[in-house]
């Protein structure tokens, strides 16, 4: 999955947890989903921990629209 967004990952994670909890999965499937869910949880936490506040401004220049430090 290339460049998955936080939103997609979070939704997938929620889906997996509810699938695991309904318990209709085979043992193989349970293990696979568990692993995937853990990876997604790691991914999401990591995304949230990327703390880099950015405030920029949009300006119109000869080159078109661009962002500059505000």
């Amino acid at each position: 999955m290339a460049e998955k967004t936080f939103e997609e990952a979070m939704e997938k994670l929620e889906k997996i947890v509810s699938e695991l909890e309904t318990g209709d999965l085979s043992l193989d499937e349970t293990v696979r989903k568990f692993e995937e869910g853990m990876k997604l949880a790691d991914f999401c936490s990591e995304k949230l921990n990327q703390v880099e506040q950015k405030l920029k401004k949009l300006v119109k220049s000869e080159n078109g629209l661009e962002e500059q430090v505000f």
Binding site: I16, V17, L20, G23, T30, F34, M38, C44, L48
Partner: peptide
């Protein structure tokens, strides 16, 4: 809210572990 989200992820993790261990 980031804190809320982190809590939520933590909670989802726990639910996954509990349900898998039960299985």
């Amino acid at each position: 809210d980031r804190e809320e989200l982190l809590n939520r992820i933590h909670h989802l993790r726990q639910r996954m572990q509990q349900t898998s261990l039960r299985r």
